[in-house]
Nucleic acid binder design. Structure first.
Length: 886
RNA sequence: GGGCGCAUAGCUCAGCUGGUUAGAGCACAUGCCUUACAAGCAUGGGGUCACAGGUUCGAGUCCUGUUGUGCCCACCA
């Protein structure tokens, strides 16, 4: 039989294993009608650059789910793809253009620029998918998609037209968020709020009639050129006389009215607010209500417009400085106050955004949001952890219309066409030959592209073929789970849901599993500017993909952030090494040819295994394994990845390696063929189940080890283990072995504390007969020469060190090693512990409330504990007496 | 201003619907190169589960409040 190499070297097989999966189409689905569909659509990584740790985390969850369901026999599709990431990519490509050719976008023009962008996509899109493979992700590459491929483009255009025809998309001259650096409009969520130190400047606007006028506070004096009113709270007594009259914008000389509105808060500032409808969200609304003009004083380039007079062309912030100075000199500045100003910043370039009135396309959100909200209440859409429902609902309930047009080139171009002749607007999937109204040829297409999230919103169904009624749609839609970080619930999850209801009439997925973000060792967000990002590929290079995956899965509770701790990855790598070596041991002992075949046959069915001469430890490990299988399955059903991986880890390391393998070594090296065969079959059976259980978490190492077991098929397409009824009736053996473990531990403890040299064999007395091979196990695993079973109550040797485990006493007679004083102290401590325990249990059991209300099994358990403790205490007291006599 | 987390061993974190004497990894101490593994083995020390109340037979787990800390949202005079 082929043997495992002595060293665990993930690099030597991870790549090879992945290739073999791909080559054999193991990730490919066929829509088998006999199977139950299971589908996850991968959140498409941006083609802007590299995969980061967040992707690794996100994808690992998805791969675990996919592999687990595949093993369970589902037709499990994980559909991969990439996102064109309109604004982000456009910025990157423009930067690249500047670096390599020293040219700007405008210099080469739209057509040429798009060529570069597509080239970029080819290069970086390919890189990303290579990285996705390195992580071991089992997605069906034959269905790989891109948000700007033909199918997605068709879906986007179709959806746009559909919404337009229903009156849910409209064009309007409204206030939007403008990024002067990116040169485009942004949706509300693309603006990041940040509290920055700022000032309130209080300026006096003199009355047009020469009166005192009114004092207003502003954090943005440069917008005064766009003022069209001063508003005061409705019914504000202080300004009663001014309402309806005009005041004058200082220095500028323009007269504007004082108006009443519900917007001003009389408590804030002076209670009077200057209104600049073109450059402030609130003021815009006030302006709408009062039919005010909306003069623009800051241009799209962030510079002052002509109405700023001598300041025209000046940068907005330079202008502020100069303007304040001028106003101060003119005697209009009343006071300055230091305050914290919440400021909107562009999520891409961090520039302070400018609210601007401009002509843009919008989606009417209220009607669309409704079914997406109801989906949560009806249970058609479930969040894990549930608390994220609230975040999602709140956002949708308070949603405002979505500005979807972007003044960019890279993206889906808006399917709106304008006839310059008659002014007609045509919305159509295909470019119209001529204007339907006046017949003018080739109406001009809108220059703008759509918000990148508009296409992302369609991803769960555009990738399955929508708007066509494809076989994939029928079979896989709606999808099973969406896995994503909490940071894009608004950007993406909510939009997918309302788009799906609109397009397909149902929720795009049943569950949303939400995870946190991966932070650096110090708990900081990984970011380019801090330079604290860790490349998953570097980690894979150093420790293997399996170690990285296991670390990511094991690290945190659902929805919480986690820290990337290199030492912990090292620990999971060590765990992989442990499994590798344990497997090496098993395979080494399975024998060749006939022997191996027998072991294989015996381990492959419950009946065959039962026919073997199973020892207690065999039954114990088989019994324990079944428990783990059940629990892990339940954990996965509840998306408890961390709990599941922890259980597998402990089972493999503690039970299988540290105990079971040690238990059977004697039998394997002995010459009793019957018991040897039972040990081999059990080793193999449990190892196979371990590999199956661990496979979704650590796909490479498990598949690699599996390949040494000479199984007919690959692990990836094998089966998830199930409780087979094999271990019915094994509970007694399992319990006996648990006691045996305790005894062995106790003896080791006594030896260690007494400082016995390991080579010295000592005799041992145990007050219970654990039966079977227990004595042999104790001898070999605890360095014991002879084991004597002593009935309870029999004479206790005086010169002995002792320990009590459960209701069993362990005595090690070792006169020359025992320190009586120390022994007495130990026993006294033990006595106190037991006494405390007993009184605690007694009062608990004496409490009628407890015995009456607690479940019977809990009460029974407590009673058993009390009995055991009392028996143990008796023994301790006897020992203390014996020592006192000394 | 509103909302949501987190606070458990020196460090990083688990702990599901309340039910033993609260766990893991790392770190620490002691002893071991025992023919699967020194990327290892054995044994051990270490926590009044932030604080204060409450519900309950029983609270790390549920409720209220307090403190500290982080995040999200918000129309930013």
């Amino acid at each position: 039989m082929r043997q495992l190499d002595k060293n665990y070297d993930p690099k030597s097989f991870e790549g090879k294993i992945y290739e073999s999966w791909e080559k054999d189409d193991d990730f490919k689905v066929t829509r088998d009608p006999a199977k139950t569909p299971y589908c996850i659509v991968m959140p498409p990584p941006n083609i802007t650059g590299q995969l980061h740790m967040g992707h690794a985390l996100d994808m690992t969850f998805q791969d675990v789910l996919t592999r687990w369901r595949r093993l369970q026999g589902y037709e499990a599709l994980w559909l991969p793809g990439t996102d064109h990431a309109s604004i982000a990519t456009e910025v990157k490509v423009a930067e690249d253009l500047m670096e390599t050719e020293g040219k700007t976008k405008d210099e080469i023009g739209r057509e040429e620029f798009l060529k570069r962008a597509w080239k970029w996509k080819e290069i970086y899109g390919g890189k990303i998918t290579e990285q996705v493979r390195k992580l071991g992700n089992s997605c069906d590459w034959s269905r790989e998609r891109f948000t700007m491929d033909e199918g997605c483009n068709k879906a986007v255009i179709e959806f746009f037209v559909k919404l337009y025809e229903k009156g849910l998309i409209y064009k309007g001259n409204r206030i939007i968020n403008w990024c002067p650096v990116c040169g485009t409009s942004l949706s509300d969520i693309e603006v990041q709020h940040e509290d920055l130190p700022g000032k309130y400047w209080y300026f006096r606007y003199p009355g047009a009639d020469g009166g005192e006028g009114i004092t207003v506070a502003t954090s943005r004096p440069e917008t005064m050129f766009g003022d069209t009113a001063v508003a005061v709270s409705t019914g504000d007594e202080r300004y009663k006389d001014l309402i309806g009259k005009n005041v004058v914008i200082p220095l500028m000389g323009k007269e504007i009215p004082v108006i009443e509105d519900e917007y001003p808060d009389p408590e804030k500032g002076t209670g009077a607010v200057k209104i600049t409808p073109a450059h402030d969200m609130n003021d815009y609304e006030v302006g709408e209500r009062h039919g005010l003009d909306m003069p623009v004083c800051i241009g799209f380039d962030g510079k002052m417009t002509d109405i700023a007079g001598e300041y025209a062309g000046m940068d907005r912030y330079e202008c502020r400085e100069a303007w304040v100075k001028a106003l101060e000199e003119g005697g209009f500045l009343v006071k300055i106050e230091d305050v914290v100003i919440p400021t909107g910043k562009c999520y891409r370039c961090d520039t302070a955004i400018e609210p601007m009135v401009s002509d843009q396309w919008f989606v009417s959100m209220k009607p669309l949001a409704k079914p997406a909200i109801e989906a949560v209440y009806s249970g058609d859409l479930k969040f894990v952890p549930q608390r994220f429902e609230k975040v999602y609902l709140k956002w949708l309930e308070e949603i405002r219309d979505w500005c979807i047009s972007r003044q960019l080139w890279w993206g889906h171009r808006i399917p709106a066409y304008y006839c310059d002749e008659c002014g007609e607007t045509i919305i159509a999937a295909e470019a119209p030959e001529k204007c339907p109204k006046c017949g003018t040829a080739h109406p001009r297409q809108d220059e703008d592209v759509l918000d990148t999230w508009f296409s992302s919103a369609l991803w769960p169904f555009s990738t399955l073929g929508w708007p066509d009624d494809t076989e994939d749609m029928k079979y896989f839609y709606p999808t099973s789970v969406l896995v994503t970080g909490y940071d894009i619930i608004f950007f993406w999850v909510a939009r997918m849901v309302f788009s799906a209801y609109e397009a397909t009439g149902r929720s795009p997925f049943e569950y949303v599993f939400v995870h946190g973000i991966v932070r650096d060792e110090l708990g900081r967000k990984m970011s380019k500017s801090l330079g604290n990002g860790i490349d998953p590929l570097d980690v894979i290079d150093a420790y293997g993909a399996d170690a990285l995956r296991f670390f990511l899965l094991n690290g945190s509770a659902a929805g919480n952030d986690m820290r990337f701790i290199t030492r912990s990855v090292e620990a999971t790598r060590n765990f992989a090494n442990k499994l590798w070596n344990a497997s090496r041991f098993v395979i080494m002992n399975l024998g060749e040819g006939e022997e191996l075949k027998r072991a294989e046959a015996a381990s492959s069915s419950a009946e065959a295994l039962k026919g073997l001469a199973l020892e207690s430890e065999d039954k114990w490990i088989l019994y324990t394994a079944e428990g783990i299988i059940r629990e892990v399955t339940e954990n996965l059903e509840k998306f408890e990845f961390s709990v599941a991986s922890q259980k597998i880890y402990e089972f493999i390391r503690d039970e299988y390696c540290d105990w079971y393998i040690e238990f059977v070594k004697g039998r394997l090296y002995g010459d009793d063929e019957g018991t040897k065969e039972a040990a081999r079959a059990t080793l193999l059976k449990v190892l196979a189940d371990i590999l199956r259980l661990l496979h979704p978490f650590m796909p490479f190492i498990t598949e690699e080890i599996w390949s040494y077991l000479d199984k007919p098929n690959k692990l990836i397409v094998d089966a998830w283990p199930q409780a087979s009824g094999l271990t019915d009736g094994f509970a007694g053996d399992a319990e006996r072995i648990e006691s045996l473990k305790e005894v062995i531990r106790a003896v080791r403890n006594i030896r260690a504390e007494a400082g016995t040299v390991p080579s010295k064999k000592i005799p041992l007395i145990v007050t219970a007969d654990l039966g079977g091979d227990a004595a042999a196990h104790i001898r070999s695993l605890a360095g014991v020469s002879d084991v004597a079973w002593l009935p309870a109550g029999a004479g206790v040797p005086e010169d002995a060190a002792s320990a009590i485990v459960k209701d069993i006493s362990v005595y090690v007679p070792m006169s020359e090693l025992v320190d009586y004083e120390a022994e007495r102290e130990k026993l006294t401590k033990e006595k106190e512990n037991l006494e405390n325990n007993i009184s605690r249990l007694k009062s608990k059991l004496g409490n009628e409330g407890f015995t009456a209300k607690a479940p019977a099994e809990v009460v029974k358990g407590e009673e058993e504990k009390l009995a055991a403790s009392e028996a143990a205490l008796e023994k301790v007291l006897a020992r203390i007496d014996a020592i006192e006599d000394k």
